[in-house]
């Protein structure tokens, strides 16, 4: 069920990219899509009533491995978030520059290219 909601969020983001006419809204759609995937990855490693994957002095290693959530997806998500940050920052920067040149955020008016 919760995976389906993740997919729904993904589709919402895709809809935003495909159907919105405002550059900022396209960027927001992209961010939503990105975060849907991040949420999905976090859910992969989730375990009900699991503990944080931090080993302490007092814990037994085997018991820890049985009860902690998977740390790998968390590491992946951290990297994916950083990459998403980079792409978003670049998108916003280009968007600002486009506004400088065209004076609008409306993609139907930004049409110097044919393809």
């Amino acid at each position: 069920m919760i995976y389906v909601m993740c997919l729904a969020l993904f589709v919402v983001g895709l809809y935003g990219i495909c159907c919105k006419k405002n550059l900022i809204k396209i960027i927001l759609g992209f961010i939503i899509m990105d975060y849907a995937v991040n949420l999905f990855i976090i859910l992969i490693g989730y375990r009900k009533n699991g503990i944080a994957p931090i080993l302490d002095k007092t814990m037994d290693v085997n018991k820890f491995a049985l009860s902690s959530v998977d740390p790998m997806p968390q590491a992946i998500v951290l990297t994916a978030i950083v990459i998403g940050l980079a792409v978003t920052a670049l998108m916003v920067a280009v968007c600002v520059r486009i506004y400088e040149r065209y004076g609008t955020f409306d993609i139907t008016k930004i049409r110097k290219l044919k393809g």
């Binding site: 920052a89 916003v92 920067a93 600002v96 506004y99 400088e100 004076g103």
Partner: peptide, 20 residues
């Protein structure tokens, strides 16, 4: 630097047109 570079452009009102 990302924050700084993005914040140095600013929209101002020039006549009746927005200008950056």
């Amino acid at each position: 630097l990302v924050f700084f570079v993005l914040s140095i452009t600013r929209v101002i009102l020039e006549g009746d047109k927005l200008k950056m």
